[in-house]
Design a protein around this nucleic acid. Structure first.
Length: 575
RNA sequence: CGGAGAGUAGCGCAGCUUGGUCAGCGCGCAUGGUUCGGGACCAUGAGGUCGGCGGUUCAAAUCCGCCCUCUCCGACCA
């Protein structure tokens, strides 16, 4: 294995902070010559960044192979027709970028590959004897996200490991799913990361389970909820909080009260001198061709993801004033009492049945009702949890405190069930000779995002501090004065020797001042630095420095001693 | 898509309010020289249709309009 000479490599570093970058990983990946932007959310990986990405990939590949995965490679360009068959040509919406080929055929760039892999399975899997099967790829995806952000944390074009498992029944998927879960834990641990596994919302994907691996990070693109008491953790969309019923009290009779100009909960509550949680508010959504009239305790917010799931629809949008009025409700003073209609679904959050004598709208401009009680005064089409968990809410499991945190979603695993196999007719013959749809799981990891997360977790004020497992190079050999033949010769033989041992070695043979070379070394963050300079060389020595803490070893300038020292330091880094 | 901010040399920025030696600074880059252990110094030099289009004006980086791009917050996120 050969070493790489910096003077002939392409590793352009920046001394100054780029103005456009905010997140540490984004700043450092630009400064350390790893990536360059081409357009919003679209990046070139420069050689140094690409090396790091390949290291991460290698770990992912090893762990996927270890659980029986078979790597394949599917196309980036898909016929739109295939997406139409599963309904996602519509459901995926704007993130699915579309175009026509020269013959006018509608095509898309794949944002994910359930359709393609299921189509493949449909053609190739006929018998239970071929199951279970895990196929995966590490490949480019394109999602036309409404907002790219945070460097590689959220991009439009990205490298993703996506895996798909096929099973004869749900029980076999249930058996295999934890294996993938554990493989994911190993992958992240090997990358030096400790994400929190959170229960995720299976959403409209259906299926019986899903987990996200969230790395707590204030610059993260996602939000999750975690209990400080019991470790309960969930995606924001699915997080459940304890709503604490009110103590039982006598149901008092309805009473109309004038509340002029109070068309928000805060105004009503302060006008009447009651806390917001003693009110019921009405929130309206358009759900397809129906109007959803959501009744929820006044201090809570509606979680649209939960509502969508309860209603079984993907099309959910805030209703306009006209639509609200058309249902017979008065915006600002809407009341569930007396509302009914063929197009109206009354959804009652489960905070309402446990509450007593609430203040709610009177369906009359300027008036509210006191002592509204469910179900005495109004009925519901659906009752369920549609509330957004808030920071500080009590935990449903242990009564501890929930904390809302930002995080980077490193991976997502999913029990898909038969949604795609049914839509595409991917069936097999079971042991009884019966045709059944394949039961599927899917498992994703954003490789570039994972790389960014590594840097988020492994850097200091001066630059990246690579974990040995994913560092682009294990050792950086710096010749302070490459124009001095003996120094260069020694450095070259050290680099060659270390490379021979199987290490990835970068030789900084650039004609730069020592200061620049030391600063660049810090910036690019290679774990072990071997310094060949006149000062120590006069004593027949070289210095070996560890990036993480600056610990320095001075050894005699012979290959065996250097090899030993470098080896010791790297082993201490876990590499 | 809503809110906020920004586009002037490869990078970081000043100039814009008050139109007229405002095409400038620092870093970087090139050449020569002096340096050479923690982002050196001197000299010379290259590099910009001031995001684009249109308008106002004798005159526009500067004023006006439209558009494009990028960043941040939110919405969104199989």
């Amino acid at each position: 294995m050969a070493y790489v000479r910096w003077s002939r490599y392409f590793l352009p570093t920046w001394k100054e902070e780029p103005a456009e970058a905010d997140l540490p990983s984004h700043v450092l990946m630009l400064r350390a010559g790893m990536i360059r932007p081409l357009a919003a959310g679209i990046y070139t990986y420069l050689p140094f960044g690409w090396r790091a990405l390949r290291k991460v990939e290698a770990i992912v590949r090893e762990e996927m192979d270890a659980i029986g995965g078979a790597e394949l490679h599917m196309p980036v360009v898909h016929p739109a027709e295939l997406w139409a068959k599963t309904g996602r040509l519509v459901d995926a919406g704007e993130i699915l970028i579309r175009f026509q080929d020269r013959a006018g055929r509608e095509m898309v760039l794949g944002p994910t590959h359930e359709e393609v892999v299921t189509d493949l399975a449909r053609r190739e899997i006929q018998s239970w004897r071929q199951l279970p099967l895990m196929l995966y790829q590490i490949q480019t995806k394109f999602r036309d996200e409404p907002r790219a952000r945070g460097g590689l944390v959220r991009v439009r074009e990205f490298t993703m490991k996506d895996g798909y498992s096929f099973h004869e029944d749900a029980a076999d998927l249930d058996r295999y799913y934890p294996e993938v879960y554990r493989a994911y834990e190993r992958i992240f641990r090997r990358c030096g990361l400790a994400p929190v596994p959170v229960e995720a919302d299976p959403g409209l994907m259906g299926g019986s389970g899903s987990h996200e691996f969230m790395l707590p990070n204030d610059g993260g693109e996602d939000t999750f909820v975690r209990c400080t008491g019991c470790g309960y953790a969930a995606n924001r969309e699915g997080a459940v909080a304890d709503k604490r019923s009110d103590p039982d009290e006598e149901l008092r009779p309805l009473e109309e009260v004038a509340t002029p100009g109070c068309d928000t909960i805060e105004e009503v509550a302060s006008f009447l001198g009651v806390p917001p949680r003693r009110t019921a508010k009405a929130v309206f959504f358009r759900a397809g061709d129906r109007l959803a009239f959501v009744v929820i305790r006044g201090d809570l917010e509606v979680n649209e993801a939960k509502l969508a799931r309860l209603l079984g629809t993907a099309e959910l949008a805030p209703a306009s004033e006209e639509e609200i009025a058309a249902s017979g409700a008065v915006p600002g003073y809407a009341s569930p009492i007396g509302i009914s209609g063929p197009g109206v679904v009354i959804v009652v959050d489960d905070s309402i049945p446990g509450a007593r004598n609430l203040v709610a709208g009177a369906n009359k401009e300027g008036f509210h009702l006191r002592n509204v009680n469910f179900p005495r005064d109004f009925q519901a089409s659906l009752v369920g949890d549609v509330a957004l968990a808030r920071d500080g809410d009590p935990c449903v499991r242990c009564g501890g405190t929930l904390r809302v945190r930002r995080g980077i979603e490193l991976g997502h695993i999913f029990k898909l069930g038969t949604k795609y196999s049914q839509a595409l007719g991917a069936t097999f013959l079971d042991r009884a000779g019966q045709a059944r749809p394949l039961v599927m799981g899917c498992y994703g990891i954003g490789i570039g995002r994972l790389l960014a997360a590594v840097i988020e977790s492994h850097h200091d004020e001066e630059g990246i501090v690579w974990p040995a497992s994913v560092t682009p190079f294990h050792a950086l050999v710096t010749v302070l004065n490459p124009t001095a033949q003996p120094q260069l010769a020694l450095a070259t033989s050290i680099a060659a020797h270390l490379a021979q041992l199987g290490l990835d070695v970068l030789l900084d043979d650039r004609e730069r001042t020592p200061g620049e070379k030391f600063h660049d070394a810090k910036l690019v963050g290679i774990p072990v630095l071997v310094v060949i300079g006149p000062r120590s060389l006069r004593k027949g020595e070289v210095e070996i420095e560890r990036r993480r803490d600056g610990v320095r070893d001075v050894v005699s300038a012979d290959l065996a001693a250097i090899q030993r020292s470098v080896g010791d330091l790297l082993r201490a880094e876990g590499g």
